[in-house]
Design a protein around this nucleic acid. Sequence first.
DNA 1: CTCAAGTACCTTGCGGAACAAGGTAAACGG
DNA 2: CCGTTTACCTTGTTCCGCAAGGTACTTGAG
Lengths: 114, 114
Amino acid sequence: MEHSSQLLKGVLDMCLLALIAEDPSYGYEMASKLEQRGLELVSEGTIYPLLSRLQKKGYIEGYFVESAGGPPRKYYRILPDGSDRLSRWAHEWQTVSNGVGAILNGGPNGGSRG
Amino acid sequence: MEHSSQLLKGVLDMCLLALIAEDPSYGYEMASKLEQRGLELVSEGTIYPLLSRLQKKGYIEGYFVESAGGPPRKYYRILPDGSDRLSRWAHEWQTVSNGVGAILNGGPNGGSRG
DNA sequence: CTCAAGTACCTTGCGGAACAAGGTAAACGG
DNA sequence: CCGTTTACCTTGTTCCGCAAGGTACTTGAG
């Protein structure tokens, strides 16, 4: 089922996917990136399971890269299916976002002046 | 705990509160209103527990009104605490909404041209 | 009255999402 | 060796929202 409600729950999935689509990245870094964009809501314990889920669904793939000052990093790269899913999610997000915005502003038939 | 992540989960709470803030309403009707605004994601089984939670937190209060063609309706009206909470939620929503939008569009420092 | 349908409310059982907390491992400096 | 930072992963718990089920009031058909 592609219920829009899943969109709300899957907002983090979508954000992670969008981040990876921009540039391959790794979990530890994504937490920082999310903050830069205004979403300081994620902890590592949230991100890693999410990344695994995304990979399991075939949206992304991971590969290890040696790091200079620490353990190897697990980078993730977007796959065609992920790109496709991201487009759909982005579209759904627009719909929901607009809907919520409309409700917050009094709705199209309510009017902000009413 | 005022984590923004709760905002994503609590989007329905917020929408219901916004609806009630506009005009007192009752559960059965709110489902329809949500649809009018583009959110067709809610069923009655979702709304009623939400309404109870909102009331329990002191954001709204319910009162019964006789109905012509059916059982009495339980209208909800917003309370000062609810009004206040709604303002905060709306503000947080803006932040998160903008953040997600930024991520979807390539981010402020990423650029759509990469 | 009985049966069906529409309005309106509420609860229970289930699965998924995110958090908090905890554990493992590699590199650097004292 | 030990402590800190970087970096990854798992487990236990809570909360959310859906699907399904149940109750109650009113109107219309037979």
